[in-house]
C-alpha cells in the first residue's frame, strides 16, 4: 500500500504573527517557519503504519517555493521514501492545491492521502476534503485513530459531539487531528539519511493542473485588541467585581 502525505511550510506555531502596518498581509520575512503541525502528525501516522507493515511506500508532497525543500527534507527524515516538490512561488489556495494533490494521487496510484486537517496559516480546513471530492473518493477528516486493512480503513474522528467511527473504502483521504499521535523528534542520523533521498520537482503544468479562480484579499488587519484588565487581590474582590457587573 502506498501513502501520499502532504506537508506544508508555515510560520511556526510559536510565532506571534504581526500584521503589516499597511494592511497588505502579515510579516513572514525573517520569521521561523516549520512543517504545519498537523502535517507532522500525518507524517508520523504514515511512518507508524509503515512500521506496522500496513504501508510499503511513503511519498511526501508539498506545494511552494524553493524553501519548501526544507519541509520535504524533514518529511524524508521522518521516514518518507521519496518526495515530490510542486514548485510554485506565492500563495496557493485550497482548491488549486487540491487539484494538484488529486492529480498526483492518481498518477502515483496511492491508496491513502494523508493531510493535516488544517494549515495553521490560512486556517482553511478545506484541502483534504476537496481532494476527496475531486476524485469522488471517501474522506475521513479530523482523525484520532486510523486502522488500515486490505482495501479499507476504519477511522475514528473528533467531532463536536464526541468520537465518530467510519469505515471507508480505499483509496481515501484521511485528515489528522491533534490526538492521533505525538510526532517523534527527528534524530541526526535520520536527518543525514534524508539528504540522500530523492526529491522530484514538478510544476502544475507537468501535472496538467489548471489553477482555480481565487479569493482576493483586499485587506489584512489585526484583531481588535483586548484591553488588559485588573488583577484582584482576593476571591472576595473577584466575587464583588463580577457581581458588580451583573455576571454572577
Amino acid at each position: 500500500m502506498k501513502a501520499l502525505v502532504s506537508v506544508k511550510r508555515v510560520v511556526d506555531y510559536n510565532v506571534r504573527v504581526q500584521v503589516k502596518s499597511d494592511g497588505t498581509g502579515v510579516v513572514t520575512e525573517g520569521v521561523k517557519h516549520s512543517m504545519n503541525p498537523f502535517d507532522e502528525i500525518a507524517m508520523e501516522e504514515a511512518v507508524r503504519l509503515k512500521e506496522k507493515g500496513k504501508i510499503s511506500e511513503i511519498v511526501a508532497i508539498t506545494i511552494g517555493g524553493a524553501k519548501n525543500e526544507e519541509t520535504l527534507r524533514s518529511a524524508l527524515a521522518f521516514g518518507a521514501d521519496r518526495a515530490i516538490h510542486i514548485k510554485e512561488e506565492g500563495e496557493v489556495q485550497p482548491l488549486t492545491a487540491a487539484r494538484a494533490f488529486a492529480a498526483a494521487l492518481k498518477k502515483e496510484g496511492a491508496d491513502v492521502f494523508l493531510a493535516g486537517k488544517q494549515a495553521i496559516d490560512d486556517d482553511a480546513n478545506q484541502t483534504g476534503q476537496m481532494v476527496a471530492a475531486l476524485l469522488d473518493i471517501a474522506q475521513a477528516t479530523f482523525a484520532s485513530k486510523v486502522e488500515l486493512e486490505a482495501g479499507k480503513a476504519k477511522v475514528t474522528r473528533e467531532v463536536d459531539a464526541g468520537l465518530e467511527t467510519l469505515e471507508v473504502d480505499l483509496p481515501a483521504v484521511i485528515t489528522t487531528d491533534l490526538r492521533l499521535n505525538e510526532p517523534r523528534y527527528l534524530k541526526l542520523p535520520d536527518i543525514m539519511k534524508a539528504k540522500k533521498k530523492p526529491i522530484e520537482v514538478v510544476s502544475f503544468a507537468d501535472l496538467g493542473v489548471e489553477k482555480a479562480a481565487t479569493l482576493s484579499t483586499t485587506k489584512t488587519s489585526a484583531p481588535p485588541k483586548r484591553s488588559k484588565g485588573i488583577v484582584v487581590k482576593s476571591v472576595d474582590e473577584l466575587v464583588s467585581a463580577l457581581k458588580g457587573k451583573g455576571l454572577l
Binding site: 510560520v11 502579515v26 496559516d121 490560512d122 482576493s216 484579499t217 483586499t218 485587506k219 489585526a222 484583531p223
Partner: peptide
Amino acid sequence: RPTYAGNAIVTVEAP
C-alpha cells in the same frame, strides 16, 4: 475571516 489563529483578519472578495 480569521487566519493565523485569529491574529490576522483578512477581508476577502469572492467571485
